[in-house]
Design a protein around this nucleic acid. Structure first.
Length: 271
DNA sequence: ACTGGCTCCTGAGGGC
DNA sequence: TGCCCTCAGGAGCCAG
């Protein structure tokens, strides 16, 4: 579900509710996420004030004086701010209960998400230390992408999914950005020209910004509990549209298997 | 150093 | 109605 726009939308949604609040307690109903939820979080987080709600790639970071809670939504995770007394539903695995009777509740059917704790600076954490630049920040430049793709034979779509190259781009937006840039997903990354790299950086930025404005592709407002869908799905150009006429030229969109994951492209608009 | 493949898990949807 | 198959927005990990 969540790529950068959805995680950032989540961050913005929860921030006003949790910033400056103290954690009353942490309830772990099922610790079996991607990694076992550490006991330390239920021990260290209560009593702490949440000083900041940050995002790095697809990771959400709740910063306190004692350490940082690292949250990841995996494929199916959602975070909502709810009344702490609300009875948990199936797959509501973790609550971070606040001092005002509300709670941050993690719902994650597939349990590919994560809730971790680190007392050290989060940027030093193993999962975050190797991340590439944020795609919406200046470090993710055409020159950077051009250099990062030299000598690589992997498909450019797969390179965009590699968080060490750029953090936060997932399969939907990789495909959408490649459409914008007019580049086929299967093109070996090393075959991008400098102008290609520049168009792709612009395509990624524009796609992510557009999706952010729409509140993500599948959901957007964490104060509402009705699972309100994001509106970007209405604007998808190729993702999930196999066989449907390309919005630009009418040629049916093609579906390609790259590795284990689907790629979508227009054979007329992308080369 | 790169690359491709596997893996974790549940649920939805299609074909029969 | 049920069963079986495939697929899903992630990404760490490992062998080659």
């Amino acid at each position: 579900m969540p790529e950068l726009p959805e995680v950032e939308t989540t961050r913005r949604g929860i921030e006003p509710h949790v910033l400056g609040r103290r954690v009353a307690r942490v309830v772990v109903r099922d610790a079996r996420l991607r990694w076992r939820v550490p006991k330390a979080i239920a021990k260290e987080l209560p009593g702490q004030r949440i000083n900041a709600v940050n995002r790095r790639g697809k990771y959400l970071l709740l910063a306190t004086d004692a350490g940082t809670a690292i949250l990841h939504l995996g494929m199916s995770g959602r975070l909502r701010v709810i009344d702490a007394e609300e009875p948990p539903a199936k797959h509501d695995h973790v609550d971070i209960v606040l001092d005002n009777g509300r709670a941050l509740r993690l719902h994650d059917p597939r349990r590919f998400g994560a809730v971790l704790w680190t007392a050290a600076p989060p940027e030093d954490h193993k999962l975050l230390a190797g991340l590439g630049p944020e795609p919406l920040e200046p470090a993710f430049s055409p020159a950077y992408l051009y250099a990062a793709t030299r000598g690589r034979r992997r498909a450019i779509r797969d390179v965009l999914l590699d968080a060490r190259i750029v953090a936060g781009v997932g399969n939907i937006y990789a495909n959408e950005a490649l459409f914008r840039a007019g580049i086929r997903p299967s093109r070996p990354a090393g075959r991008l020209s400098r102008p290609d790299a520049a168009r792709l950086v612009r395509g990624i930025r524009a796609t992510l910004r557009h999706a952010l404005r729409a509140g993500g592709t599948t959901f957007r407002d964490y104060r509402d509990s009705n699972g309100d869908p994001g509106y970007f799905q209405l604007a998808l150009k190729v993702y999930g549209r196999a066989g449907v006429p390309c919005r630009a030229c009418g040629t049916p969109v093609r579906l390609l298997r790259l590795g284990q994951r689907s790629a979508f492209y227009c054979r007329r608009c992308q080369h």
